[in-house]
Computed example of a mutant assay.
Amino acid sequence: MILRIRLLLLISFICLLILSSTFFLPYGFSVIHEGWLATFWLLISNTGGTIGVPLITILFCILISMHYKGWKSKLLVITGALVVFSLVLGVFARVNEYFIKEQLKVERPNIIFLHESMGFDSEAFYNIESKDERRAFIEDFFNGQLSQVIMFDDEPLHPKVITHWLHETGYSFPSGHSVNAFLMATLMAYIILFIYSDFRRRLFFILPFAWATLVALSRVLLGVHTALDISLGAAIGCLVAFLIISTRLIDRHLMPKSVDA
């Protein structure tokens, strides 16, 4: 177990170093204009959202079950893994969205841009409690701008980015996508290291972290989060995952008894 923890600490530290580059490099709002880059990074971002995370979770649970023999064992593992992932991710996502963010009340960078550059009333926007009503408020604002092309750095915004901004009506800090992606990635990587003993297949533990890093970066590139949002969000996700791992819940309930620890 100690070796697995060390590997996870190493790769998570590397990922956090990569994310820290967003403090110094001009990543913010860099893929919000017309073109394929906006579409690509929106796709990456959506894999860490309310649809992408459940789909990836289900797929990963199915992959876990393939390590077992017999359909009953496979079904039990899929069910157990789904319950664990759903509870952990669901509970913490709601704590972050409805408690932490609401207490800190940090405005999103895209809302700040709209306020400073286009006269959007960010104070009135955040005074609205309902997210659906906030969405209607900002949608009315965009509809009122149809007489002119919405620009950023003298280039038009991609229509899909505008649609994405319409759905990001909560507060900014910490990034929920980053928290969930790194929480999920750390748990997945630990399970991969637990299941496989050969070096070649163990290297697959890097893939969940690569995915989580891209998801976190996409949030800055799309202008909906800051470097601090994603960096601390990723760190929080890793920390929560390590706390769960330390309970040995995964070792006892999800893994085959025949696997060497």
Rank of each mutant, 00 (worst) to 15 (best):
K69L: 08
F204M: 07
S130D: 14
I111V: 15
I138E: 02
I245A: 03
S30K: 10
L254A: 02
K74Y: 04
V179N: 00
L217S: 00
E116D: 15
A227L: 05
A136W: 06
A212T: 00
V161H: 12
D153E: 15
G48H: 00
H33P: 02
L3S: 12
G80F: 07
L19W: 06
I100M: 08
Y27K: 07
F29R: 11
T57C: 02
V88A: 03
G237F: 09
L214F: 13
I44P: 02
V215K: 00
G233V: 02
L183M: 08
M151T: 14
L146V: 15
I2V: 14
D229W: 04
V259F: 14
I250S: 02
T22H: 02
D251V: 03
F85R: 01
T39P: 09
L203P: 04
I150T: 06
E34T: 15
F23N: 11
E107L: 15
P208Y: 01
V88Y: 00
C61I: 04
L222M: 08
L104T: 04
W165E: 07
V240L: 06
G237C: 12
F23K: 12
G176C: 05
V149F: 13
S65K: 01
A185N: 03
T47D: 08
G48A: 03
V179I: 13
V224W: 02
D153F: 13
T226W: 11
S197N: 06
P54C: 11
M188L: 09
R202F: 01
F29N: 13
T22N: 04
D154W: 15
F152R: 09
G144L: 12
E102Y: 10
